Structures are given as structure tokens and as C-alpha cells.
Amino acid sequence: MRANGIDALHMFNNNLYSLVILDVNLPGVDGWGVLGLIRKTSQVKIMMLTARGRLVDKVKGLDAGADDYLIKPFEFPELLARVRSMLRRGQERIEEATMKVADLELDLGRRRAYRGTTRIDLSTKEFSLLHLLLSRSGQVMTRSQIISLVWDVNFDCDTNVIEVSIRRLRAKVDDPFENKLIHTIRGVGYVLEDRS
């Protein structure tokens, strides 16, 4: 189990979840911050756990994008029942979740990528990297941002792992196709966008 908000974000960006149970009182980035960052790129079901039972706190959580709000202390059977209910409500939408730029499509439920009708086989890291670039389409991502969101936050930034990974991803996603989507911004980083 991860113990702080930065680790929680790292796990979220490197794995596919149907539901997130999020404690408000996380060190580093608190639960509100994690909720806000997740909501910028995903509509995954999120349940907030907190000892703050005031109405204003409940409203804050729900208005910020939480799907449910459970106050501590709680009985474990109630938590499980709420999880089952949330998964039932969101199953169809989660299975159909896709991201798309031009003819590039990422099927999050099946963890598959396509350019038009051509299926592209990706490794786990390539999928995570493409997911990150697609979720921030049009936004330039720096090397340090990519390192912290796709690899471990303490990863050695002096290695050329990003360049190698981008090259491999381009070989699958861009090179066989006329319309190039992954672009290098010299001295800054990378951006995925349709420039056709």
C-alpha cells in the first residue's frame, strides 16, 4: 500500500483502475490534491475516506469530483457494499472508455491502441507513456514530468530512457503512418497533437 499522495498519483498513472479509494489525509499531496489531478485526465470512480464529517467537507468532496464520501470510523461491510454499488453504476462507462487524437485511439478498458483500423501492440511502459501523452494532448510534457508520472519519482533523470522510449513508441505509433502525432519540442520535452 502506498503512503502518500505522490505515490498514489504514480500508481494511478501506471495502472488501470475501475475504482479509487482515496484518503483525504495523505502526506505530501493530500487527498483533495490527488482528486483534482486525477479528475483532470480521468472519470474513474473515486470514493473519499475521511474523518471530517461536516456537511461543508462532504460538499467540497462531491463538488470536486468524488463519486462517494465515507466518514471514518465505518464498518467494513458498508465500505464493500458501497464499492459494489459504485462498480455496478460505472461498469458500462469504464468498459467503453477511450481516448482519441486524429486516428490514434487508446482503448483503456482493453489496454489496446489503434491507428485507424490498425492495432498497435504496446508494452506496459509504452502504454503508460502513450496514455500520459494522450491525456495531455496539446500540452508539452517535460522530461521531468514524464519521469515522475511514468517512471518512479526517484528515477535517474540523467539516463536516456525517455528518448529511447519515445523512439520506440514513435516506431509503432508514428513511423508507419503519414500523419505524425508525437513531436519533439527541442530543449523542453514532447507533445502529442494533430498538426495536419
Results as ranks from 00 to 15, higher is better:
Lys180Gln: 09
Gly109Phe: 00
Trp32Ala: 01
Lys58Ser: 08
Asp175Ile: 14
Phe127Thr: 08
Gly138Ala: 04
Ile46Asp: 03
Gln91Ala: 14
Arg84Ile: 12
Leu70Tyr: 00
Ser148Lys: 14
Val140Lys: 03
Asp63Tyr: 12
Ser196Arg: 15
Leu106Met: 13
Arg84Val: 10
Val20His: 01
Ile185Ser: 05
Ile6Gln: 14
Ile71Phe: 03
Ala113Arg: 14
Leu133Thr: 00
Leu130Pro: 11
Gly109Pro: 02
Arg168Phe: 07
Met47Asp: 00
His131Thr: 02
Leu62Gly: 03
Ser128Arg: 15
Thr159Glu: 15
Ile6Lys: 13
Val59Trp: 06
Gly28Asp: 09
Asp152Ile: 07
Ile6Glu: 15
Leu79Cys: 06
Val24Leu: 10
Leu79Met: 04
Glu163Asp: 04
Pro176Arg: 14
Asn13Phe: 15
Ile6Phe: 15
Gly187Lys: 12
Met47Leu: 11
Arg136Tyr: 09
Arg2His: 12
Met141Gln: 07
Ile38Asn: 06
Gly53Cys: 03
Gly189Met: 04
Asp63Glu: 15
Asp175Tyr: 13
Thr184Leu: 10
Arg136Ala: 04
Asp156Val: 05
Arg93Thr: 13
Leu9Met: 14
Gly53Asp: 09
Pro176Gly: 06
Phe177Gln: 07
Met47Ile: 15
Lys180Asn: 01
Lys58Gly: 09
Pro27His: 04
Pro176Asn: 11
Arg88Leu: 12
Ser42Thr: 06
Val191Gly: 04
Arg195Ser: 01
Gly116Met: 12
Gly53Pro: 15
Trp151Arg: 08
Thr184Ile: 06
Met99Gln: 12
Phe155Met: 14
Ile120Trp: 03
Phe12Met: 10
Val24Lys: 09
Gly90Lys: 11
Asp103Gln: 14
Arg170Met: 04
Asp30Ile: 14
Leu169Asp: 04
Ser18Gln: 13
Asp174Thr: 12
Glu95Cys: 08
Gly53Thr: 13
Asp156Tyr: 06
Ala113Glu: 05
Leu104Arg: 12
Asp67Trp: 03
Val164Gln: 08
Asp7Val: 08
Ala3Phe: 10
Trp32His: 11
Gly109Asp: 04
Arg111Asp: 00
Met86Asp: 06
Arg2Thr: 09
Ser42Gly: 00
Tyr17Met: 11
Leu19Trp: 00
Pro73Ile: 14
Asn4Cys: 11
Leu62Met: 15
Asp121Ser: 01
Leu106Tyr: 03
Arg136Met: 04
Lys60Glu: 14
Gly189Ala: 07
Asp23Thr: 13
Arg54Val: 07
Leu26Met: 08
Glu163Trp: 01
Gly28Asn: 00
Ile21Thr: 11
Thr50Gly: 07
Asp121Gly: 07
Asn160Leu: 04
Arg84Trp: 08
Ile185Thr: 09
Leu55Phe: 02
Gln43Trp: 05
Pro77Trp: 11
Leu22Cys: 08
Val59Ala: 10
Val188His: 10
Tyr190Gln: 11
Leu134Thr: 00
Arg93Tyr: 06
Met86Lys: 15
Asp152Glu: 05
Glu96Thr: 13
Arg143Asp: 02
Asp107Phe: 12
Asn15Pro: 12
Lys58Ala: 11
Val44Arg: 05
Asp7Glu: 15
Ala171Phe: 05
Leu106Phe: 08
